[in-house]
Nucleic acid binder design. Structure first.
Lengths: 341, 341
DNA sequence: AACAGAAATGCAATCGATTGCATTGATTAA
DNA sequence: TTAATCAATGCAATCGATTGCATTTCTGTT
């Protein structure tokens, strides 16, 4: 069976004995076209199974009505929440969303950025990968004035709107909470410091400790990529240090989980012997035993905000006078891994 | 600062005093162009910061080198594994991947399908939503001979390649395993029967029961959308039935989780009083207490296979003579929720 | 030196929708 | 009745890359 032929505005025009321009205008509800012809044209379009060729329109208008999104991993609750927030706003405003994951690899992030650029997305929302320390692939966008919005893992130096959570405050609260539970020796499993979020979390942690007049044991502050395996290595290494800590603040829930599992295996009680707080409120954190105290980030709202700012910027011809950095509040969720019994 | 101007092949041509066609051919390594000019052109292209306008090329060639993917939810381990598999194959072959989620809503699924169609994706890979029972939005693609590959939640009636897991076999093994543990009264929390996967899981369950010469209590077979809440309602309703079951086979891990949590709250022991097996091997299933026995599906491999079949089909002008249905093997993972102590 | 044949390059139409600038036709005012 | 005005429609160029066909430039042969 032969495929249905593509119907163009010219086909509609020919059938109705009018010009293609009129058809084009009518379909876009241009008020120049009379009510009568517009209805006639729309009817014919539906009957003939017309579907606009988006590429042709994009070529002419130099807009794609598409937003590119790059995240490290779509399979992380936080990131997929953000994506849902972006989609929520974008779809309502007639934008399509193209989602890609960098897998935290600079090379893939760069490939994707180039591809999105060549595909002429109208704007880009992204959270950089753990490896990303050079930004040539992002210059592409700024050079051509293509709006860019960062969220969560931002690049301080690049002028663009930024949506972050209060990592410092969240970490401060988390650590403070451990101290309030009577802990005196709080260790920290942190992420790579080239990512601002992890630097800020560490800073919040340090501030809370020093505000409480406690000491930091620098051997008990570790940095890694925060995977399950990294978390395991980290907790092992912490347990080997001289003065075993009585609490750990982990920069994400994954390492908190590793720690808890390993401690259970070693017969060390959580939270009695070592209390633990994570970060991000991954869905599993309330399911494991003990459930993990953590910091909740408003992912969906961040996505909405990012999309709003981006679309606003896409709409205006001029560069924004100033770039905003919007900081969203976090919330400490106290569960069993940290609570004094 | 003014944005960098767009560089086109015409700009390169002008600069080198040659024609745009030669530039176009050289950049695509067309053997008609001599080695010397090709090098010259490529050098100039890089220097000038040329980036091809994909839309223009697409318009002319009627190909986008883009694959559309629609899944119910990207935030499900199984689906994001499939997506990773698709990306793995697609990127290597020079295809971009556009990912969208239907949120299990027919309306959104339809909107997305239309949008992908209008954007002229070269092919579509999808897993239909729970609500989807009409397929007009998919006819678009078959009418225009745009290749389509289903995975997991397939539509039997539509001619297309299909990648499925052995739901029947998996469910059979799961149920059989419960019976092997000495269980005699196995209930079932199932999904909507319009989705083949759930129909097959139920069928596998029924077959295992009858093969073992046991009885099915039809009151203890429930159907719902398999959310946390649905699972809670289901377990409550099962507990109200006359003869309380001693095992439950759940069509996904989410409802298995709901059941376990509710049973714990009620002081009913898992697996001693009621043993439970889920389906899909969600990451949380090994983390909760008791850990959930489940059926593992090879998501990544399914994605790879789907992308391979799709791309093969995109490459060939003719329709495939026959459509394949590829069934991938599942694996029973026995954990604590079902194991006789 | 002349020419066939091959190799390299150029010309111009094309993909389908959009849009600035006419042009047509109808309506109104004088 | 005629000029002026406005509403509705059409013309044709344009976006940038591709490609069938024509043309030019080489190469080798006699």
């Amino acid at each position: 069976m032969a495929p249905k032929p593509e119907i163009t505005i010219h086909d509609i025009a020919k059938k109705l004995n009018i010009s293609a321009s009129t058809v084009s205008r009518a379909l876009k509800d241009n008020p120049l076209i009379s009510e009568a012809t517009r209805k006639k044209i729309k009817k014919a379009a539906i009957e003939m199974g017309y579907r606009p060729n988006v590429m042709a329109a994009n070529l002419r208008t130099r807009r794609t009505n598409t937003i590119g999104v790059i995240v490290p991993l779509i399979n992380r609750h936080f990131f997929s929440s953000v994506i849902s927030g972006i989609e929520d706003v974008a779809y309502k405003q007639g934008f399509a969303v193209t989602i890609s994951q960098s897998n935290d690899k600079l090379e893939k992030e760069s490939t994707i950025a180039h591809s999105l650029f060549s595909n002429r997305v109208d704007g880009l929302i992204l959270s950089i990968g753990m490896e990303t320390q050079s930004y040539d692939h992002l210059k592409l966008f700024s050079e051509r004035n293509i709006p860019l919005v960062f969220f969560d893992r931002i690049v301080e130096e690049i002028p663009a709107h930024k949506i972050v959570v209060d990592d410092f405050g969240g970490a401060y609260r988390a650590t403070q909470h451990l101290i309030e539970q009577g802990r005196k020796k709080v260790a920290h499993i942190g992420g790579p410091l080239n990512l601002q979020i992890y630097a800020k979390r560490e800073a919040g942690y340090r501030k809370a400790i020093s505000d409480a007049g406690l000491q930091i044991n620098e051997n008990q502050i570790l940095h890694n990529s925060l995977t399950r395996q990294d978390g395991l290595n980290a907790i092992k290494s912490i347990l080997k240090t001289k003065e075993r800590p009585d609490a750990i603040f982990c920069a994400n829930d994954t390492t908190a989980l590793s720690a808890i599992i390993h401690l259970k295996e070693r017969g060390i009680k959580v939270p009695e012997d070592i209390a633990i707080v994570g970060f991000s409120n991954e869905p599993f954190s309330e399911l494991v035993t003990p459930s993990i105290s953590t910091i909740k980030q408003p992912g969906f709202e961040m996505g909405q905000k990012a999309a709003e700012l981006l679309i606003k910027q896409i709409g205006s011809k001029t560069k924004p006078k100033a770039y905003e950095t919007i900081m969203m509040e976090t919330e400490l969720i106290v569960r069993n891994s940290s609570q004094r019994k």
